[in-house]
Simulated scan of single mutants.
Amino acid sequence: MRASELKHDVDHIPGGLILLDGSNTITAVNQTLCDWLGLSKQDFLGHAPETRMTRASGMYYLGHVLPSLRLHGRVEEVLLSFSNAAGKDLSVMLSATSCPKPEDGFQVLVIPMQRRNLVEEQLQQARKTAEQAVAAKEEALQEVRAMAHELEERHKELARLNSQLEQLATQDALTGLNNRRVYEREIEIHLALFRRSKLPFALILADIDWFKQFNDRFGHDTGDQVLKEVGQCLSAGMRDVDTLVRMGGEEFALILPNTTLEDAALVAERKRGEIEKLNSRHGTVTLSLGVAAARNGDTKSDIYGRADRSLYKAKSQGRNQVCMS
């Protein structure tokens, strides 16, 4: 290939080419670089290359690239930025070598870093997307934690409300004792245990004597107070397995697991004596009590009926006593 053809081809190679003399002045530039920057060759000739660079790149060129080129005769793959006619930056990779003798100066090859810029933009976008994803994940986790906390609080509140509902459903509002609903449940349970394992249990029914007179003489508020005092006295000293219930009005029931008829009668007599000694400011309070123990083939009506008949017997025989059957 002739030299003239080579010079013609230099203008159209896919890279910028700059020739510098020994004083760092541009003596030639190819058309490719001019096209990239939107400048003419006259805009380059007679100027130093750093005048067409960004300020930071120009300082780096003068402080590091040019001294290294003069000292070693070459530099390779230095990242710099040129400014085009519109004032926008063009990132390039610059490599340079000394011109072969007898010429004096340097030849500089400039390759645009558009692909690198694209990759950097993609990396930055990917990093931004990743950061946004992390932030969104953390926000979602915070929302999940908040929802979990709220759900836990609602579960606690629901448990509290359920406990209150259970209490309302199974507790006598006046005395705080269990109500008849609990009696029905417990008597069924103990009858089932008795049928399966013959585990004995007894039922005591207790009724306050002459209770109507308290209401008639002192009023219903006094009657309510007497009911509370009797309930507290009956519950004192009971085992955890025992069940005390206010059946309604002035009647109470005690279910005593693993207890014979005779032992239940002793419990009833002890409670009768404690009530009689109760220091009530409204006068002496007494109880009549009927006792029954579970028998083979009993239904809840059977055992309740026997205890109720014993209670009626205690009432008819003068009150303030215990009868059993």
Rank of each mutant, 00 (worst) to 15 (best):
I111V: 15
P67S: 07
K88C: 10
G73V: 00
L66E: 06
E121H: 01
S83V: 15
M59L: 13
L79Q: 13
S81L: 01
P100E: 11
L69Y: 01
L90N: 05
S91D: 12
R70N: 08
M113G: 02
M93I: 12
E120M: 05
V108S: 03
L79P: 00
S68H: 11
S95V: 05
V119E: 08
G63R: 15
L66D: 04
L71D: 03
L109E: 06
R52A: 13
M53Y: 08
R52Q: 14
R74T: 12
Y60T: 03
V75Q: 02
S83I: 15
G105L: 08
S98E: 13
V78D: 04
A86K: 13
E76T: 11
Q114G: 10
R55S: 11
H72G: 07
T51L: 12
I111R: 10
R115D: 03
R115P: 01
C99H: 04
V75S: 01
L71G: 00
A96V: 03
R52Y: 03
N84C: 11
V65N: 02
L90R: 14
L94H: 05
H64M: 10
K88V: 06
K101M: 09
V110N: 06
L109M: 14
F82M: 10
T51F: 09
P100L: 12
T51Q: 15
N84Q: 07
V110W: 02
L71T: 12
S81E: 14
M93F: 06
L69F: 03
G58D: 07
E120S: 05
N117R: 13
P49V: 12
R70D: 01
S98R: 13
L118Y: 01
L80S: 07
P49G: 10
L94C: 04
A85V: 13
L94Q: 03
I111T: 11
R115F: 05
V65E: 01
L94T: 03
L80A: 07
L71R: 15
N117S: 04
M113Q: 13
V75G: 02
G73E: 03
S57W: 03
M113I: 02
Q114D: 14
R70V: 03
P67E: 02
M93Q: 09
A96Y: 05
E76L: 09
V65R: 01
L109T: 09
N117L: 14
Q114L: 09
E76Q: 14
D89I: 01
R116N: 05
L79Y: 04
